[in-house]
Measured scan of single mutants.
Amino acid sequence: RTAFSSEQLARLKREFNENRYLTERRRQQLSSELGLNEAQIKIWFQNKRA
C-alpha cells in the first residue's frame, strides 16, 4: 500500500477534479513530477472513481 504525501494527494485530487481519466502521456508526466510510478497513479484514479 502506498503512503502518499499531502503534496502528492493535493496534486492528484486537483488533477482528478480537472479530468477523471488520465491519458497515458499525462500519467507519465504526473509519475515523473510526483516521484510515483505509473501504476500507483493509475490505481489511485481507479479507486477514486469507484
Score class of each variant (00 low, 15 high):
1 R>E: 15
2 T>H: 14
2 T>W: 11
2 T>L: 14
3 A>N: 12
3 A>Y: 14
3 A>G: 12
4 F>A: 03
4 F>Y: 07
4 F>S: 02
4 F>V: 05
5 S>R: 04
6 S>F: 10
6 S>H: 11
6 S>V: 11
6 S>Y: 11
6 S>D: 13
6 S>K: 14
7 E>R: 06
7 E>S: 08
8 Q>T: 06
8 Q>R: 02
8 Q>L: 04
9 L>H: 05
9 L>W: 05
9 L>K: 05
10 A>I: 07
11 R>Y: 06
11 R>Q: 06
11 R>F: 05
12 L>M: 04
12 L>K: 00
13 K>D: 15
13 K>Y: 14
13 K>V: 15
13 K>F: 12
14 R>E: 13
14 R>W: 09
14 R>S: 10
14 R>P: 00
14 R>L: 11
14 R>T: 10
15 E>S: 04
15 E>M: 04
15 E>L: 04
16 F>W: 10
16 F>Y: 10
16 F>M: 02
16 F>I: 03
16 F>V: 02
17 N>Q: 13
17 N>W: 07
18 E>S: 07
18 E>V: 08
19 N>R: 07
19 N>S: 08
19 N>D: 08
19 N>T: 05
20 R>N: 09
21 Y>G: 04
21 Y>H: 10
22 L>P: 14
22 L>H: 01
22 L>C: 05
22 L>W: 03
24 E>W: 07
24 E>H: 11
25 R>P: 07
25 R>T: 13
25 R>W: 08
26 R>D: 04
26 R>Y: 06
27 R>T: 15
27 R>L: 15
27 R>M: 15
27 R>Q: 12
27 R>K: 10
27 R>D: 01
28 Q>S: 08
29 Q>W: 08
29 Q>K: 08
29 Q>H: 07
30 L>C: 02
30 L>E: 00
31 S>F: 03
31 S>G: 06
31 S>Q: 05
31 S>C: 09
32 S>K: 15
32 S>C: 09
32 S>M: 14
32 S>L: 15
32 S>D: 11
34 L>P: 00
34 L>Q: 01
34 L>V: 04
34 L>R: 00
35 G>E: 05
36 L>Q: 01
36 L>V: 10
37 N>V: 06
37 N>H: 12
38 E>D: 06
38 E>V: 09
39 A>T: 12
39 A>Y: 13
39 A>E: 15
40 Q>T: 13
40 Q>M: 12
40 Q>Y: 09
40 Q>A: 14
40 Q>V: 15
41 I>N: 00
41 I>V: 08
41 I>Q: 01
41 I>H: 00
42 K>P: 00
42 K>S: 14
43 I>M: 12
43 I>G: 08
43 I>T: 11
43 I>L: 13
44 W>R: 01
44 W>C: 02
45 F>I: 02
45 F>S: 00
45 F>C: 02
46 Q>W: 11
47 N>G: 07
47 N>E: 13
47 N>Q: 13
47 N>H: 11
48 K>G: 05
49 R>P: 03
49 R>A: 10
